[in-house]
Design a protein around this nucleic acid. Structure first.
Lengths: 152, 152
DNA sequence: TATTGTTATACTCTATAACTATA
DNA sequence: TATAGTTATAGAGTATAACAATA
């Protein structure tokens, strides 16, 4: 729609298309976007404290709690007191949590394939490689944060 | 951070980097992100009604009003009753509005150049072309909507 | 009766500040 | 005193519904 399509415009449109595609997938597994971000972070690294998890995901520590409560209630994560420092609570995936995470990733990978199916194989390789490179070039400060906004 | 970087993760990081870079530019001209989206829409097409502008930008019509009030107050747009149908108000850029829009676009183009400077010229061409193609392949439903979220 | 623009209300999400328990 | 986790309060942003003017 802009005469020269701006990066922000294009990225925004694309991101929201991805989110719109992902939300139903996550919902089928009883997850919202932040739940999935948390599970992803837990699947990537070793068991962290909630403070570390907050930093890793970009989710404010006070709001992270609600996600962890629900995830624990659903049996997807465990929260255990740290024997080293009993102020900490160590968060870790359960077997069920790993399974749900794996299924979501599989479905999301398929969704991505569909979204990118309009590109040639060569263009897709360059596109994905560029995304990874650009992301790597960003300052550390910005962390994850897919939102579940609704447009007016 | 994910083992296989997901599209949503990468797009989100990149979009927020763009937004973080753009907000100070817009702020220098007294604009917020929605103001800029509205000015952009007005710069692209002919003078629309507020309802059309709402549809074109994705901004809810009730929340669009506040933006239009401020933009008119700042002398960047005009709102005139439609002689054809006096329920409508026709919105249009003023000369001052066009100037501000042009300056913002120029600064944002420079920002984009910096953000993409890590790519080779060839990769950048493919990357931008792919973005445009992917955006064009999306369903009509989704319209613009850069947000000014703050991560926790 | 339907529609444009507007205002008002309720609701959600977010930011900030307290509180507790450990250290 | 400082920190991890938690809870509570205030504020911003959003959706929804109602309203006045015009068709």
């Amino acid at each position: 729609m802009p005469e020269r399509p701006e990066l922000g415009f294009l990225l925004n449109r694309l991101l929201h298309a991805v989110i719109d595609g992902e939300l139903p997938i996550l919902q089928r597994h009883g997850l919202n976007m932040w739940d999935y971000v948390v599970l992803t972070a837990l699947g990537d690294g070793a068991a962290p404290t909630q403070a570390e998890l907050s930093a890793a995901t970009g989710r404010d520590k006070t709001r992270l709690i609600g996600n962890l409560d629900r995830l624990a209630e659903a049996g997807l994560i465990r929260r255990e007191p740290d024997p080293q420092d009993r102020r900490n609570r160590i968060v870790a995936l359960t077997g069920k949590g790993s399974t749900v995470l794996r299924k979501c990733r599989r479905d999301i990978a398929q969704l991505e394939g569909e979204l990118l199916s309009g590109l040639t194989a060569s263009d897709r390789r360059v596109f994905e490689r560029s995304l990874v490179r650009l992301e790597a070039s960003l300052p550390e400060s910005r962390r994850s944060l897919p939102t579940s906004r609704r447009s007016g």
